[in-house]
Nucleic acid binder design. Structure first.
Lengths: 210, 210
DNA sequence: TCAACAATAGACCGATCAGTCTATTTTTAT
DNA sequence: ATAAAAATAGACTGATCGGTCTATTGTTGA
């Protein structure tokens, strides 16, 4: 644990990350970031140049959190791939429990920016692909029969847990997600579709006519 | 199918809903809504009084979409509760496939507004509770052993599907969510925790020390 | 000690925002 | 046909925003 004084850059980054998630990016003015960081107005522009670049830097730190989980924390557990997948949800729970957790900055940023041809969405999707890729490697290592589907299922419940935790402000979402992950893993080697067979397409057709 | 001319109120509501989701609420100026709706500036304020009230009206329409699904579309299928639960994901898929789907206005609004003591979050949570309540009734009707947990699992993957579809712009998320729902329902009557038993707490303890 | 640099406070700018207002035209109901 | 109501275009306001600039104060290394 280094006792080095927090640099001006770090102070800005932490305040921005916190405020962007807690109050929204557009709703957060430069002045508020500077107040919370305890930094002068000019320093923001010497270090980052613009609010947009500061947001990019916040994206990087959030991505690094995920990469740290997948590349350092989980491999350090030295247990089976299946157990490491489940341990990911314990990491999520610890994240949700932080007093300054207010959702995922990628998801929140995409939500409040243009969905067509905006750099925000492109960066978010790029990082998402890298995270899902690491998750996929874990799933493949676990010996799943259909690793791609399992990975997509797990990715979906991770995003669901993040949003549920953000909206309900309850870290229990991680536990529910873990239970769901256990269901997915338990069904991993079973038949890929429902035993009832034709029921799936029957309801789909009925909905189509609604 | 009524051929009644769209009222000024409706035109504003539709344009606002579309733009709030596609470009974000803060990023969408009044002027842009008026242009897209083809409505004069003053009319917005005679009908809604403020941008905030317009957002509230958009919330109502989105909630009514969900209520229509649960109270009219799904009961109209006249099939088992289990099949109606799965049919919900087909409705989701149809929603995601719409050319003007850009996420859920509740989730997006919460993402870009203050998370502490803001009316936006309160309204979103209230509507969410009503929707989850209807989902819970469906789960209870299906005879689940632990209906509350199953409901939370299903609610989580619904939110996950919405966010995944928003970020990836791919309606396939609904299909993945349906497959996951099938896993949940299949495990519904099995043992509530992993057969491996102590593995769960073992990884949790290991993560705790990370 | 002193020069080079980093950080500070805060005035300032142009742009944009939500919202108001007026004067005019269109629609509606009788 | 006509009066009342609704919708229109667009100028306008005060506030806020991101970003720039200047003058001053600490800080650091030789």
């Amino acid at each position: 644990m280094k006792a080095t004084r927090k640099s001006t850059e770090e102070k800005l980054l932490l305040a921005a990350r916190r405020l962007f998630c807690r109050a929204g990016i557009h709703a957060t003015g430069i002045t508020r970031i500077l107040e919370e960081a305890g930094v002068a107005r000019g320093s923001l522009y010497t270090h980052y140049g613009s609010k947009e670049n500061l947001l990019k830097a916040v994206f990087d730190t959030e991505a690094n959190m995920w990469f740290h989980w997948f590349d350092l924390d989980l491999p350090g557990l030295k247990c089976s791939a299946r157990e490491r997948i489940l341990a990911l949800f314990d990491l999520l729970e610890k994240w949700f429990e932080k007093e300054d957790f207010f959702g995922c900055v990628f998801i929140n940023a995409v939500a409040e920016h243009e969905k067509d041809s905006a750099w925000v969405k492109d960066v978010a999707v790029t990082y998402r692909d890298q995270i899902i890729g690491r998750l996929g490697a874990l799933v493949a290592e676990s010996g799943a029969k259909d690793p791609d589907i399992v990975t997509q299922k797990l990715g979906l419940i991770i995003e669901g847990a993040i949003v549920t935790a953000m909206v309900t402000q309850n870290s229990q979402a991680a536990h529910i997600a873990r239970l769901t992950a256990e269901d997915i893993l338990r069904c991993m080697e079973c038949s890929p579709s429902l035993p009832e067979g034709s029921a799936s397409s029957a309801t789909a057709a009925a909905v189509e006519s609604a």
